Amino acid sequence: MFVALWEFEVKPRSKERFQKVYGPGGDWAKLFRSDSHYQETLLLHDSDHPAIFLILDFWTSRQAYENFRASHAAEYERLDAVGEALTRKERKIGWFESVEHG
């Protein structure tokens, strides 16, 4: 399993639209669902810091995610531009892979 983990600071009055774009049923997830290697998206909100959200995108592997980004570059850039209009900051926390036991 692979997870792309992002942190966003959302502009005031943009939270509802942000959730519609980045949430599990949002525009990003709809795009991702076109790939069989996509698993799910989680959107987390920091109740102590109302403008802060975390997004976790789950994929079968890092390679699957990177292949998807390369093959859907135009759609990815278009949605990224929508997100930039809604946020003050975007930070890639990291790309994480599950640790195999054994």
Rank of each mutant, 00 (worst) to 15 (best):
L56F: 11
W59D: 00
R17Q: 06
R88H: 13
Y22V: 00
D80M: 04
E100M: 08
R17H: 04
G25M: 04
S47G: 12
A4Y: 09
G83K: 08
R69F: 09
W28P: 01
G25A: 05
F96V: 10
P50L: 02
E66N: 10
A51F: 00
E9D: 11
L31S: 03
Q63A: 14
D27R: 10
M1V: 12
S34C: 08
F68G: 08
T60W: 01
F68Q: 10
F58P: 05
S61P: 14
R91E: 15
K92W: 07
D48I: 04
F2K: 02
A70H: 12
H45A: 15
R62V: 14
E7N: 01
H101L: 00
Q63H: 11
W6G: 01
S61L: 11
L5V: 15
P24V: 02
H72K: 14
I52F: 13
E7D: 05
E77D: 08
E77M: 00
A29K: 02
D35H: 13
L54N: 03
R69M: 11
Q19T: 12
V82F: 07
S61Y: 09
W59Y: 02
L42S: 10
L31A: 04
A70W: 09
N67H: 09
R33Q: 13
V99D: 04
H72F: 09
G23D: 05
I52E: 12
A64D: 14
E40V: 06
L54M: 12
L31C: 03
E7H: 00
S14K: 09
R88K: 12
F8G: 01
F58S: 04
E77R: 06
Y22S: 04
G102K: 08
H101V: 00
E7S: 06
L5I: 15
F2L: 06
R78K: 11
F53Q: 05
R62Y: 11
S61D: 13
R33N: 10
R78P: 03
H45S: 15
G83Q: 12
A29D: 04
R88F: 14
